[in-house]
Amino acid sequence: MTRVLVVEDDPILGEMLTLYLEEERFEVLKAVTAADAFASLSSFKPNAIILDLMLPDTDGSTLCAAFRERTDVPIIVTSMKSAVADRIRAISSGADDYLTKPYSVQELKARLMAVLRRVPPSSAVERPERPSVRLSLDMERRLILLEGRPIETTFSEFEMMKLFTQNPGRVFKREELLHSVRGIDSFVNERAVDVHITNLRRKIESNSKTPQHIKTVWGVGYKFIP
Score class of each variant (00 low, 15 high):
Arg3Val: 06
Val4Trp: 01
Leu5Gln: 10
Leu5Tyr: 11
Leu5Pro: 03
Leu13Lys: 00
Leu13Glu: 01
Leu13Pro: 01
Gly14Asn: 01
Gly14Ile: 00
Glu15Cys: 03
Leu17Gln: 04
Thr18Ala: 02
Thr18Trp: 00
Leu19Arg: 15
Leu19Thr: 15
Leu21Asn: 00
Leu21Gln: 01
Phe26Thr: 03
Lys30Gln: 08
Thr33Phe: 01
Ala34Ser: 10
Asp36Gln: 11
Ser40Phe: 14
Leu41His: 12
Leu41Val: 11
Ser42Thr: 15
Ser42Ile: 14
Ser43Cys: 06
Leu51Ala: 12
Thr58Phe: 12
Asp59Tyr: 07
Arg68Pro: 04
Glu69Val: 02
Glu69Ala: 02
Thr71Leu: 07
Ile76Lys: 03
Ile76Phe: 06
Val77Met: 06
Thr78Asn: 09
Thr78Tyr: 02
Lys81His: 15
Ser82Trp: 15
Arg87Pro: 05
Ala90Lys: 02
Ile91Phe: 13
Ile91Cys: 08
Ile91Lys: 14
Ser93Lys: 07
Gly94His: 00
Gly94Lys: 01
Gly94Trp: 00
Ala95Asp: 09
Ala95His: 06
Asp96Trp: 05
Asp96Tyr: 07
Asp97Lys: 11
Asp97Ile: 09
Leu99Thr: 11
Thr100Asp: 14
Thr100Trp: 12
Pro102Trp: 06
Pro102Cys: 03
Tyr103Phe: 09
Val105Asp: 04
Val105Ile: 14
Val105Leu: 11
Gln106Trp: 12
Gln106Cys: 11
Lys109Met: 09
Lys109Tyr: 08
Ala110His: 08
Leu116Ile: 10
Val119Ile: 12
Ser122Asp: 11
Ala124Ser: 12
Ala124Asp: 07
Ala124Lys: 13
Val125Lys: 00
Glu126His: 03
Arg127Leu: 12
Arg127Thr: 10
Pro128Arg: 00
Pro128Gly: 00
Pro131Tyr: 08
Ser132Cys: 04
Leu135Thr: 06
Ser136Asn: 09
Leu137Thr: 03
Asp138Pro: 07
Glu140Pro: 08
Arg142Cys: 01
Leu143His: 09
Glu147Asn: 13
Glu147Ile: 08
Glu147Asp: 14
Gly148Ser: 05
Ile151Phe: 11
Glu152Gln: 08
Thr153His: 06
Thr154Met: 00
Ser156Gln: 12
Ser156Val: 10
Ser156Thr: 12
Glu159His: 00
Glu159Asp: 03
Met161Ile: 05
Lys162Ile: 03
Phe164Tyr: 05
Phe164Arg: 02
Thr165Ile: 14
Thr165Asn: 14
Thr165Glu: 15
Pro168Asp: 07
Pro168Met: 04
Gly169Ser: 03
Arg170Ser: 07
Arg170Ile: 07
Val171Cys: 04
Lys173Gln: 15
Lys173Cys: 12
Arg174Ile: 08
Leu178Gly: 05
His179Gln: 09
Val181Gly: 03
Asp185Gln: 10
Phe187Glu: 08
Val188Arg: 10
Val188Gly: 07
Val188His: 11
Val188Ser: 06
Glu190Pro: 05
Arg191Pro: 12
Val193Asp: 02
Asp194Arg: 13
Val195Tyr: 05
Asn199Tyr: 12
Arg201Leu: 06
Arg201Gly: 10
Arg202Gly: 13
Arg202Leu: 10
Lys203Thr: 14
Lys203Ser: 13
Ile204Thr: 06
Glu205Ile: 09
Ser208Ala: 12
Gln212Ala: 09
Ile214Thr: 01
Lys215Leu: 13
Gly221Thr: 05
Gly221Lys: 00
Gly221Ile: 01
Phe224Glu: 03
Phe224Trp: 13
Ile225Glu: 14
Pro226Met: 05
